[in-house]
């Protein structure tokens, strides 16, 4: 279980999150959606202890505030929005960076397996700085997967915390990445993903939290949360949600670009 209670995030005078409660269960893909500036990344920042916050974040029953970085790193891996690398490390070296200190012996097996999961095996020896945006994103995902390779360790679930994991990917790789996230959850791990694509969210998530202007508008199963009214209010434009009987999952059609 990952739970955040009464989370406030402030940047100078701007209150980005105004007291949010958020829960994610192991075994599920939990999505966070909302318009630009609604506080999605701030919420993920609080959960990952990247930005200063008020409130409490509990990871597997322990407050993250009292834990050392390496303790947290053993329990959860974080995929950032955009990755820049300062020095010409190779793809394999970048994936290795996620491994805990002291991991030795068959040191390259997990990174190579992680690379094969994202279809980047043949690029292992290339310089990371030469990759395209989408390739770099997939290598970063491999790094994150390698960090928490076993979804359950010592009887505790491990967590993937993903900030827009499919942002710069083509549609085939979007599905590949979301499949990986779902597999991780099905194997007992927990996944929290900040998402922009509402249809992918409906297709892959077990729980959705809708943020708007730093508040939580709704949260629950996609079928219950992703409604015309909630989404239209959150995004400030007219959205039509349908549920085709064959799939039983909502899909979202924008009605017009005009301000709602």
């Amino acid at each position: 279980m990952l739970s955040a209670t009464g989370i406030e995030v402030r940047y100078g005078d701007h209150l980005a999150l105004r007291g949010i409660d958020f829960r994610a269960r192991a075994g599920e893909v939990s999505a966070i959606v909302g318009p630009n500036g609604s506080g999605k990344t701030s919420l993920l920042g609080a959960i990952t202890a990247t930005v200063p916050y008020r409130g409490a974040v509990m990871l597997n029953g322990r407050d993250i505030a009292g834990q050392r970085p390496w303790e947290l790193a053993a329990q959860r891996a974080v995929l950032p929005q955009a990755a820049r690398l300062a020095f010409p490390f190779t793809v394999l070296e970048v994936v290795r960076l996620g491994l805990q200190a002291g991991t030795s012996g068959a040191r390259d097996e997990v990174p190579m397996l992680a690379l094969s999961r994202v279809g980047m095996t043949e690029h292992a020896g290339r310089s990371f700085q030469d990759l395209s945006g989408g390739e770099a994103q997939r290598v970063m995902l491999a790094r994150v997967l390698a960090q928490v390779w076993a979804p359950v360790a010592d009887g505790q679930p491990r967590w993937l915390l993903l900030d827009e994991p499919v942002a710069s990917l083509d549609i085939a790789h979007q599905l590949q990445v979301m499949d990986l996230a779902r597999d991780f959850a099905r194997a007992g791990g927990g996944v929290v993903a900040v998402m922009h694509d509402l249809n992918l969210t409906a297709l892959y998530s077990d729980a959705v939290t809708v943020l708007s202007r730093g508040r939580c508008l709704a949260s629950g199963h996609p079928r219950d949360v992703m409604t015309d009214d909630t989404l239209s209010e959150a995004y400030g434009c007219s959205l039509r949600v349908s549920v085709p009987p064959a799939e039983g999952l909502p899909y979202i059609l924008p009605q017009s670009a005009a301000q709602w």
């Binding site: 970085p69 303790e71 053993a74 891996a77 974080v78 300062a86 960076l97």
Partner: peptide
């Protein structure tokens, strides 16, 4: 740290 300060923290570096 080559990955940036936030990511360095995420992979367990103080």
């Amino acid at each position: 740290l080559a990955l940036g300060e936030a990511t360095a923290h995420h992979i367990g570096i103080d």
